[in-house]
């Protein structure tokens, strides 16, 4: 098997995650989909690391995880406060940009 298959898998997971972001309305699920996309990226980075034979790809994946953790913390806090004020976790309910 060619290790490039990992990249194909990563892109497939990324596309699935992107689609999920677009079709789901529950903010938490949307967030999960974003995590899925980030994980797909991480997989690609790890595969790149193996491809190039050095650890830089893994380092970036590591940073991605840290940033993702930070993002989850803030994002979930936003969702919680949104739910508190609107009693809904649907992203469509926050459509104040509409004319």
């Amino acid at each position: 098997m060619n290790p490039v298959n990992y990249l194909y898998l990563a892109s497939l997971l990324f596309a699935i995650g992107a689609t999920g972001v677009l079709i789901r309305r529950n903010a938490i699920v949307v967030f999960m989909c974003i995590e899925l996309m980030l994980n797909a990226c991480n997989l690609a980075l790890v595969a790149f690391s193996r491809m190039h034979g050095n650890l830089d790809g893994q380092i970036i994946a590591f940073f991605t995880m840290v940033v993702a953790a930070a993002e989850v913390v803030v994002g979930l806090a936003i969702i919680v406060s949104l739910f508190r004020s609107r009693h809904s976790a649907s992203v469509d309910d926050a459509s104040l940009m509409k004319l």
Partner: peptide, 25 residues
């Protein structure tokens, strides 16, 4: 893929902590 540290972190931090945070929310 030889990323042992990341693999363990993925299990412990991501699946263990972050996903639990998700479930909690």
């Amino acid at each position: 893929n030889g990323a042992y540290f990341l693999g363990i972190v993925q299990v412990v931090v991501y699946t263990g902590a972050i996903m639990m945070l998700f479930l909690f929310v």
